[in-house]
Design a protein around this nucleic acid. Structure first.
Lengths: 129, 129
DNA sequence: CTTGACCTTCCCATAGAGGGAAGGTTTATG
DNA sequence: CATAAACCTTCCCTCTATGGGAAGGTCAAG
């Protein structure tokens, strides 16, 4: 199949299929004589794997390692778990930062009249935190 | 004062001070005959304002509007509140997405042996979600 | 009058995706 | 068979926010 059909079947855009190939996340696709990329049915699963990895927030770098581990039948699950645990830790840090922002902003928003007058605790906070 | 001292006093890097000027978030700085940017004491507060806005996660575009509203003595607090509320909503969406990722990942990590064997529920999820 | 610490602008890189141009190929239709 | 539409190719640009670093000018102290 061509890249367009693979894109439809896997849910990954043609742009990103080429990008993943450039980044070495997947092997280079075979080409027709005229240069078109040619894919097999099993390639759909590879790109679905990548898509799921991205949905879980893994970076392309992590994803590259995970694809490699997936392909490696003598992998250790410890390695996979290590990548996932580190990712969870990173996400948790981001979560806490975002939560802090929301807490502070909600406090300020709650105390802002939101009318035509200029007085505003949000501006006050920014001005003299 | 020069840009270096302003940077120290405000906590904003020289790089970003120039960038904010290029983006029109702050007015163009006066220059010496030799081209050095020259700042006043009150400029420290402007860049601290911007820094705080960034700490609360506001985009440069939002920050630009907030600086403008801060400067506008006949502003309506409603406009400020609108920007902040939209931002809180965006942050909340991101928070929920991140929370979902963490929940799913934690479930998978918990069930992964993390030993030398290849069997791994994390890989299984990615392979056939 | 040289050295070092400033400053200037300009280009590049990051991460992950999309837009779009310029041009070649394939397929369907008249 | 010819032509048009729908593909495909590579290449460069854009977004967001920030930093690195080069090449070169300026200023102050020794």
């Amino acid at each position: 199949m061509n890249i367009g059909e693979l894109s439809k079947l896997s849910g990954v855009s043609s742009k990103m299929i080429r990008r993943y190939e450039d980044d070495g996340i997947v092997a280079k696709a075979k080409r027709t004589d005229s240069g078109y990329r040619v894919y097999q049915d099993q390639d759909v699963q590879i790109f679905k794997f990548i898509k799921r990895s991205r949905e879980l927030g893994f970076s392309l770098s992590d994803t590259k390692q995970l694809v490699s581990l997936w392909r490696n039948k003598s992998r250790s699950s410890a390695k996979v778990k290590e990548i996932a645990k580190q990712h969870v830790q990173d996400l948790t840090e981001k979560l806490n930062e975002t939560r802090q922002m929301i807490l502070q902003l909600n406090h300020l928003v709650k105390n802002c009249h939101g009318d035509s007058r200029p007085d505003c605790p949000i501006i006050d906070d920014l001005e003299s935190h």
